[in-house]
């Protein structure tokens, strides 16, 4: 399998789509748009996984794809939308660093991913190499997003996008136990649920989702005393 063959090109295209959507996520300033992009990424991811399942002839991957579609593209975005609507965050705009620097950093991360993966996978097939590079890029971009977003929802979205990269990577590996993938999906849901629970409580307690409010308390708020010898 190599360049110019349909299975490879298709896989390449879909994985590239996921990566592209990561950039779209990074580019978004509005929370609602962010959620939309996340849903789109989930959908493309599901397609990529399903394609892998077909190419590699692993039926289990269809299950994974389905789970990804349901969780990432439908359930979680809906839940997040609900949250946003409830808090009235529809028009909220937030990034910690500017879009421009964010994009430049993103490109740098992709370069790093390729730089690391390509020499590391001399013996592996092209599909594995490309897939791994894409997956890692998506992960790194997800992490970048977690760092650049100030809102709790932004961070959750970053984490979910990061998991998308994971699923993309897992799809490339034949023979991984299904339970892992299922657990991944289940845990993502659980994680999202717990996160949602927290955001609710955060809302209750602080009337806001800006995490900047949080970090002043460390249980040691009194001024630290000078220790005698």
């Amino acid at each position: 399998m190599g360049f110019g063959q349909l299975p490879f090109d298709m896989a390449h295209l879909l994985a590239g789509g996921v990566l592209l959507l990561s950039f779209v996520l990074l580019y978004q300033r509005r929370v609602t748009a962010l959620i939309g992009a996340l849903a789109a990424q989930g959908a493309v991811l599901a397609m990529a996984v399903a394609w892998q399942g077909w190419v590699l002839d692993v039926p289990a991957l269809y299950v994974t794809a389905l789970a990804a579609l349901l969780a990432k593209a439908v359930a979680i975005p809906l839940g997040l939308r609900l949250l946003v609507r409830r808090f009235g965050l529809r028009r909220a705009v937030e990034t910690a660093i500017g879009i421009g620097p964010g994009m430049i950093m993103g490109v740098g991360l992709v370069a790093l991913a390729i730089l690391v993966v390509l020499p590391a996978t001399q013996g592996a097939g092209a599909l594995v190499r490309e897939g791994l590079a894409f997956a890692m890029s998506v992960m790194l971009l997800g992490m970048l997003m977690m760092i650049t977003r100030r809102h709790a929802i932004g961070q959750v979205v970053g984490l979910l996008s990061l998991e998308n990269g994971l699923v993309l990577a897992a799809a490339g590996a034949r023979g991984l136990p299904l339970v892992v993938e299922l657990a991944t999906a289940a845990l993502v849901v659980a994680l999202a649920a717990v996160a949602g629970f927290f955001t609710l409580r955060l809302r209750d307690d602080f009337a806001g989702l800006d995490l900047g409010l949080l970090h002043h308390h460390r249980g040691e708020s009194a001024p630290p005393g000078e220790g005698p010898p």
């Binding site: 790093l112 790194l140 992490m143 977690m146 760092i147 995490l211 900047g212 970090h215």
Partner: peptide, 18 residues
């Protein structure tokens, strides 16, 4: 190290990975 926000902690973890 103690006074950072969660974002900055994430950044440190990210930086370590990078």
């Amino acid at each position: 190290l103690r006074d950072l926000s969660i974002r900055q902690f994430l950044g440190i973890a990210f930086g370590t990975l990078l």
